[in-house]
Amino acid sequence: MEMVLLLLLKSIVWIVVLLSIFAFLMLFERKFLGYFQLRLGPNRTGPWGLLQPVADAVKIIIKEDIIPREADRITYKLAPIASLFVALAAFASIPVGPPIELFGRTIELSIVNPNAGVLLLFATTSLGVYGITLGGWASQSKYSLLGALRSTAQMISYELSLGLSIIGVLILAGSLNLYDIVQAQERVWFVLLNPVGFLIFFISMFAETNRVPFDLPEAETELVSGYSTEYSGMRFGMFMIAEYINMITMSALAALLYLGGWNGPSFLPGIVWFALKVTLFIFIFIWVRATMPRLRYDRLMSFGWKVMLPVALANLVITAAAVSLF
């Protein structure tokens, strides 16, 4: 019973924290995009635009909820919920710091800690594409469907190289548990031992979260807004939240698998190191969005299958051989 309560409490805290991070992430993204483009970004709401998330939230909640006449109503309503649910659930197995002592008991800083933590995370995130595909299909609109089909093809293609790059880390750490993987990086971070794997993970990360330069599912300039074209109000908001939480999850995973998680010089607590590393990746996400043009769709696919996949496979074979020989 106590365990269930603890799980429930952790889940509520996690959801609140994630949603608040999301709110300010939007602000920081717009601010930084502004600076990158020599603008000021939002600056009318409060000092440094800090109240912008509140204004955005009020706006999106009171917007009219539009359902297209031809839409498949059940699936149309289910899709954003599925997206958000999967995004939040994926974060359940991510530890944000070493276990802490509180009230005489050890508390792990992740909601669950299964032996196969990496696999659980991978299994949950692999369900993320359902929300997008179902939403695009249920809208019964050309742009939505095209966006949905693109995202399905893209996410499946890059999931392969993402998975293969992770296996390299698993071989180096000899465990599927995220705590063990961080433990194994106490002396050397895996980004140094497996730089090619990191590069593949890094590129696939952008494709998996549908971010620039791989944002073809949305591609405003040609598909209006892809799978979310017909959505409005909070249903659109749920897709947005899911996308940004996926971004946080991927950044956290990159920090855990390659940058040593919460390991760092001891003048800062582990959780702060971890937050700094995640922030670094999120900043790179924004930086890339401000810098890179969108890829052409056929180039995206041939890059995924003809470059990423073979390199990931070769990297896996070499890593496995090196680990077993030395």
């Binding site: 696999l119 949950t124 692999s126 595909t133 469907l145 499946i156």
Partner: peptide, 18 residues
């Protein structure tokens, strides 16, 4: 979950949605 829900059924959905 990874193989059936995460990959095979998504391909099914892809074809059926199309």
């Amino acid at each position: 979950v990874i193989v059936y829900a995460g990959a095979i059924m998504i391909l099914f959905l892809f074809v059926i949605a199309l």
